[in-house]
Design a protein around this nucleic acid. Structure first.
Length: 512
RNA sequence: CGGGGUGUAGCGCAGCUUGGCUAGCGCGCUUGGUUCGGGACCAAGAGGUCGCGGGUUCAAAUCCCGCCGCCCCGACCA
């Protein structure tokens, strides 16, 4: 990414570098020797597991079940749906052989083991799943099918970035089959709501819900719904999509059923997914120059307990109290880390847990034992006007009587969760503008301007869209649902480019 | 695939222009001691096919040729 010009925060001066720094210091992931692939390290994976749990609960609550389909898709399956195949053609990894052989002392691919039909490593699973659904569906009584799968997929992207775009990534893909268009559409919208709920109430990332323009739709979909979040450099990040597929895949896989009237019809489909990209969103929305900041609901560790001591006698007493605190917090159902490592200065431990995004730290030293108190330190606070870093550091720290301190952890985590979302909303509002003229647009997205979200009237064609994209590196992120528009952006108007009548504004931004 | 850059210890780099002594620095690691309420200090130590192959030369990390990897910019994109 260009380092940039469109800085909206000090750290955005070199946002790409900052982003990698946070990942490295929080020990989330690293590049693997395999081109474009990522190793997700334990701390990063623990966050993904938390996400999985929250999402899975929501899927179950809306009637879905999990299943698993193969990694390999026969080439002929993938090409059944024409648009779908065209959309993914340029990024497919293909398996063509099934055996190695030693030739002149060097082990290589055995040319005689060539597969009759190449196997594509799934870039997404619609085609292989619908080939299976064909066998499962005869009557309206077999519908709906509401299945989700947790899987890895491979998209051979030219350029990759940790979490945001890697050649292989982990995700969840829901694939549902319905007896009517109305039901399928309802499902499409329902799952977008599930994603939006997750994004805001778990990840603390405010999102705009909307539909993609035809040019940005999923390959093979009739409608693509999405949620868009704003990162701290003002760029938009697509955080989840939900597609209404109509009867396209049913037709290409020939999946029909007899409806209540005894008439044969093609099945109506949806698919929806979110990926490990959400971890990228988390980083770019909340983190700061110290490192990762996690919403408590996604923090693998809620509280880090750091003992402080000089003498051996102090060490014994302090560690005794620390492990008591540890157990009492555990008993509250919290995830706690007692950092009793030897030979590391307390200060070094503070930095480490802060970089890893642990929401609350408890420091326990001889002075606390004397006073019967505990020192609680929050990972972040809402900024006060004119406050220096030193001031905030002081303000993040509170000394409380022991009992009170332990009772305050959970409420504090709830507060932090709320404040994180609040902070992100304030940021987004601050960097969003209603724009009415091309001059305003040019100024807003000028090379040295901060950028952000622009609400503009649009009545242009696909070609107009490309033209704007080329000139400003911006795209129409979505046509927002009417209730997603800020009040000042509501109402009819004239297209910013063509002057044509427009019933509603769209969301324009630079994007990842 | 086109343009630019880069490859030297686990990580980050210097050295290369103008070839030359035993290839260096910071971080990290090991051991011992002193430390410990915001990233400790001292001492001793371990760790290298200088990306790979070839060439020039008395002598190559350094010069020449070929190959490979990675990064950035473009086309592609959850």
């Amino acid at each position: 990414m260009a380092t940039n010009n469109n800085a909206v925060t000090p750290r955005a001066q070199d946002y790409a570098q900052w982003y990698l720094d946070v990942i490295k210091r929080a020990d989330l992931a690293e590049h693997s020797p395999v081109r474009g692939c990522m190793v997700i390290k334990p701390h990063g994976y623990a966050i993904w597991e938390k996400m999985q749990r929250e999402l899975d609960d929501r899927f179950k609550a809306t009637g879905h079940v999990n299943a698993y389909f193969p990694l390999f898709i026969p080439l002929s399956f993938l090409t059944k749906e024409e648009q779908h195949a065209a959309g993914f053609a340029k990024e497919c990894a293909v398996v063509t052989h099934h055996r190695l052989k030693s030739i002149d002392g060097e082990v290589g691919v055995d040319p005689e083991s060539k597969l009759e039909e190449p196997l594509v490593i799934r870039p997404t699973s619609e085609t292989i799943i619908w080939a299976q659904y064909k066998n499962w569906i005869q009557s309206y009584r077999d519908l709906p099918i509401l299945i989700n799968q947790w899987a890895n997929v491979v998209r051979w992207e030219m350029r990759t970035r940790l979490f945001l775009r890697t050649a292989e990534f982990l995700w969840q893909e829901g694939h549902t089959a319905h007896a009517s268009e109305a039901e399928a559409l309802e499902e499409t919208y329902r799952m977008l709501d599930v994603y939006a709920d997750f994004a805001e109430n778990v990840a603390a990332v405010p999102v705009i819900k909307g539909k993609k323009t035809p040019g940005e739709r999923f390959a093979g979909a009739l409608e693509t719904l999405c949620i868009e979040g704003m990162m701290q450099d003002g760029r938009a990040l697509q955080m989840g999509t939900s597609h209404y597929l109509g009867q396209n895949f049913a037709k290409s896989s020939d999946v029909t059923f007899l409806n209540k009237d005894g008439k044969r019809d093609y099945v109506y489909a949806t698919s929806w997914g979110v990926s490990t990209r959400l971890i990228g969103a988390l980083i770019m929305t909340h983190s700061d120059d110290t490192g990762l900041v996690l919403p408590p609901k996604l923090a693998p560790i809620h509280v880090a307990v750091v003992p402080i001591f000089k003498t051996d006698a102090e060490k014994i007493k302090v560690l005794e109290e620390a492990s008591k605190v540890f157990s009492e917090l555990k008993a509250q159902g919290l995830s706690v880390k007692l950092d009793d490592r030897d030979g590391i200065m307390p200060g070094a431990k503070y930095y480490e847990w802060e970089a890893k995004g642990v929401p609350i730290r408890i420091e326990i030293g001889p002075k606390d034992l004397e006073k019967g108190s505990l020192c609680l330190v929050r990972r972040f606070l809402l900024e006060k006007e004119g406050e220096t870093e030193q001031d905030q550091r002081k303000r993040r720290k509170t000394f409380l009587p022991r009992t009170q301190a332990l009772a305050s952890i959970k409420p504090t985590l709830d507060t932090m969760q709320r404040e994180l979302l609040e902070r992100a909303k304030v940021f987004r509002t601050k960097h969003s503008r209603v724009l009415n003229t091309m001059e305003e647009f040019e100024r807003f997205f000028a090379k040295d301007a901060p950028g952000g979200f622009a609400w503009v009237h649009w009545a242009g064609t696909h070609e107009h869209e490309d033209e704007i994209a080329k000139r400003f590196e911006t795209t129409i992120r979505c046509i927002p649902f009417p209730d997603q528009l800020p009040d000042e952006a509501k109402g009819e108007g004239r297209c910013i480019l063509t002057g044509g009548a427009s019933s509603q504004r769209v969301l324009v931004a630079r994007a990842y």
